[in-house]
Design a protein around this nucleic acid. Sequence first.
DNA 1: CCCACCCCTGGGAGCGCTCTCAACGCTGTC
DNA 2: GACAGCGTTGAGAGCGCTCCCAGGGGTGGG
Lengths: 347, 347
Amino acid sequence: MPEQSPGSRPTLEAVAARAGVSRATASRVVNGGDGVRKPLVDKVLKAVEELGYIPNHAARTLVTRRTGAVAVVIAEPETRFFSDPFFSQQIRGISKELTAHDTQLVLLLVEGPGDFDRIARYLAGGHVDGALAFSLHTDDPVPAITRRAGIPAVYGGRPSWTADPGDQAVPYVDADNRGGARLAVQYLRDLGRRRIAHIAGPADQTSAMDRLDGYRDVLLDVDPTLVADGAFTVESGARAMAELLERRPDLDAVFVANDLMASGALRVLRERGISVPEQVALVGFDDMDSVASETDPPLTTVGQEIEGQGRLMARLLLRALDRERTGSGDVPESVITPVTLVRRASA
Amino acid sequence: MPEQSPGSRPTLEAVAARAGVSRATASRVVNGGDGVRKPLVDKVLKAVEELGYIPNHAARTLVTRRTGAVAVVIAEPETRFFSDPFFSQQIRGISKELTAHDTQLVLLLVEGPGDFDRIARYLAGGHVDGALAFSLHTDDPVPAITRRAGIPAVYGGRPSWTADPGDQAVPYVDADNRGGARLAVQYLRDLGRRRIAHIAGPADQTSAMDRLDGYRDVLLDVDPTLVADGAFTVESGARAMAELLERRPDLDAVFVANDLMASGALRVLRERGISVPEQVALVGFDDMDSVASETDPPLTTVGQEIEGQGRLMARLLLRALDRERTGSGDVPESVITPVTLVRRASA
DNA sequence: CCCACCCCTGGGAGCGCTCTCAACGCTGTC
DNA sequence: GACAGCGTTGAGAGCGCTCCCAGGGGTGGG
């Protein structure tokens, strides 16, 4: 690999000259070589090799109007992105899939509510071909932004559609939250538990609401004192658990809307000397790598294929881009990924 | 903001026409407006507004040879990126700083040893102006790649320079690992502990070795049975702790090279009924958000400003880019960031 | 009153690439 | 043997922007 003297990379022109062909033919070879006779292909490839030619991305984008990059928009303000392995895993999945299709990943972290302007400008500026977005709250402006920017998007997690029904055209990937919740609560009931409480996630996230719905599906006519609100964080889980114990000292099981909160709840139970699962059985949600199996006792939880979800998101987006380019192919549709109950020791 | 009819954004030409000026003048205004008379500036801005003009990034890059983006290369294979809030926090810091300077972040996750070719091609392809890289192992090819690509780079963590002395030109940002280790061990000794063990990180990472060196600085002539090897993961910490207890049941303190391993060690101590800090005092390293304060007992640890390190990395790189552009300015130099002992309950 | 100088503006070249279109040569067929 | 037809190649026109350079108009000084 020849060292590059800064500021003067070889151009296609140079490759063509060296190979004794036209720029057009050199271009064809560089882009796959279809319709070029073998000997010429070889000559061009040799020239490419010798000169250390690397296509100029900007020039290519200028004419093709494709950037070969997609944005990943993470709108989660502050804390969650830090403590939540969830995102990292999805991103890993996304990265793998994009890489396999020679597409780059531009990370857009939203730095606060005032920052959406910047995101909007960026997405509309033709820097990327499409966008993947996460964690849409009820009033999330991301759907409107991608629509206005005229680029395809795929969401991680079902968006709430109250804002604009037009956004329903955007496909999403989400775990079967409701079904998973049903699975968990059903399991607790099959264990013979009768006073099954729930620690819910934030009301502005559909995953939290779907899990609450699933809980209600099984336990028709739930006593409201059995439901406490949390915020998907360890601390909020602990608080909610304390609150529940205060209100309903008789509870014998808790279905917690995610593992992070469950680990907080577990801590409170331990502090109060309440044995798990004997006195209170606990089921979480997510089967989060570094959490669920590390708690004491290890968490029984609803597992989902997080990295797979990331891959799937990327795949849907790539398909949409392909469709845009070729003008044909099937319209990507939303996918609900299956969940499973992972039995450990807490229930 | 006018909706974009797909595929036909307004060009600078259109803006110029509408404002009744030349394309050159319109360009000047869009780029700051220096040397253009006020009334014309206003006319152009009005036209920009009305047309919803957004500059075409590819065209701009093609002529300026600047992309306004930098790559963040994460060469950590597999597990660590997941479970380690360390990276997320650094990235958050980097993102903040880059955003403040209108620079985009392209995330490059290395998907295995064979993947460096792709990274090399990307960095050399003029997609980005510079690179930030993490977690350089002894045989990490990243330094060579960025050098060959002819783009400035800044490293997170001191690289090991055995491979190529030429890489020493690359600045890095690192915590004062050795000093922090000294701080921790000194503290344990001041507490009256005499048999202070160490759980070390992987030998191919300089941070781990620096922490080991700091430990040795204080405890000259260390008995080798007091040092166990870990891999910066919870599991490896647990294993190392068990090993140490086997070898040296008389130990009365452990300095652990990071919080993740310390939490694993803590678990083992708890399982064996060894009280912390009474029987064995424990000090970690990193003061990792979601770990150090969540353990039982909360971890005394060496704290570093992780997000600040990220910011600093970005700032150094931006300075290097500026220098490249203007041809002047000071050469960025490596920075060692200070650490502090965070006293909690484990020691 | 003229000229030198400066500030502002426009014309135009060209960044490196893709893609259309026409030309070319070759094969196969009647 | 001529011609249709196909596969292969090259010429050239941009993609949208920046930036160099020349020209025009105004100002101030001689």
